[in-house]
Design a protein around this nucleic acid. Sequence first.
DNA 1: ACCTGAACACCGTTCAAGT
DNA 2: ACCTGAACACCGTTCAAGT
Lengths: 227, 227
Amino acid sequence: MKAQAPRVPLSRERVLRAAVRVADEGGIEALTMRRLADELGAEAMSLYYHVAKKDDILDGVVDLIASEINETVGQLAGPSAGAAWKAAVRRRILAAREVLLRHPWAPAVFETRAAASPAILRYYDELLGLMRDGGFSYDQAHHALHALGSRAIGFSQELFTPTSGAAGDVDQATMDMMAAQFPHLAGMLADIVHDDPASTLGWCDDQEEFEFGLDLILDGLERVRAG
Amino acid sequence: MKAQAPRVPLSRERVLRAAVRVADEGGIEALTMRRLADELGAEAMSLYYHVAKKDDILDGVVDLIASEINETVGQLAGPSAGAAWKAAVRRRILAAREVLLRHPWAPAVFETRAAASPAILRYYDELLGLMRDGGFSYDQAHHALHALGSRAIGFSQELFTPTSGAAGDVDQATMDMMAAQFPHLAGMLADIVHDDPASTLGWCDDQEEFEFGLDLILDGLERVRAG
DNA sequence: ACCTGAACACCGTTCAAGT
DNA sequence: ACCTGAACACCGTTCAAGT
């Protein structure tokens, strides 16, 4: 049996949507031109008729995910005037985060893109709008964006996750060695385990920690706003 | 003339130092096995005798940069007990940042590494030590690390830098279009330009913004500490 | 013990050629 | 207008072979 010509003709739109699908299923390293063409029932070279190069695909994919975020946060409602800005911004950021959690590979791609996509610009524009509702000056809001960093759009990069990996991975010998070399890390770990002996761990850079950091910043910003 | 055998024999150490040199000069995309071998006057295949694979090199490079950070912050002095913790942590983080500014490609590599390098563990261990001096519980210090995120080691990733690129790049037509589509971004930009008409711009995610965000978080943490 | 040449599988991308 | 086959330059990596 021979391969059939694709029923639906290719298009930039179809290519980008397929790219998201491939990355969702196999991670970002699965996203090669040949694998992507496969997903579309075409040859790798055919893609170049619809996109300029792979970088163009990555730009488009970022814009697509950001659009998904915009659609989600677009359904949020609630007051944002005055002191209500904080709850509104918080809601918005946590909703954006939920979208990104469905595309775990996306933050890393976001970070490699230099040019801002239209959808990302829109996201930030509306975020600024909420702050303006709260009474922030543009200068204050500008600082706020920098202070939030990638948290503004729902993720935060950690260089080192204290309890990533199951706690069971660490045997007593390594634990002792670590206690000698890194007493504070060991103490912290012991404390976390002690506080929650039933926890499976491998679960601390998650929702709770994200919200702690977010609230710390939002509270600080509220203080700036209130003068 | 034919190539001479390398005078100095290869070693893991030499390979890693050469890798940092190559990345410093040509960016991370210049760091290929063949280019790295060139730098050492050897063949690409020879590297595999001293390192397991490219990933191993990247792990080693991260550890090397983190060691450079540790050496730098190791020379800092000053009190850290009680309320002095904040200044001590601030000093430490800004010193780490200076090292990373000399290796602009490094943060991106840091973020791709899952396993924590010994040098990074040491950095965090000592950072935790300063917080303990300040009176933080391990649980509080744990939250603090998450709140700081990558800022703890001196950098912060932005998804979109409001005024990256020279301001002169934006002509009036694009500015008008942007004002219609993204009123708040346009307003913010106009305000920044107005506040500092002489500024060349393209210079806002820098030191000042980093310190603003850092201080916001440190102030919030101090409030947590003081209970 | 340490280094290398030839080779492999896999990238992104070009280009002339097919329909 | 849209798609493809063959080919190119470049990756990381293996392995048998050199000294």
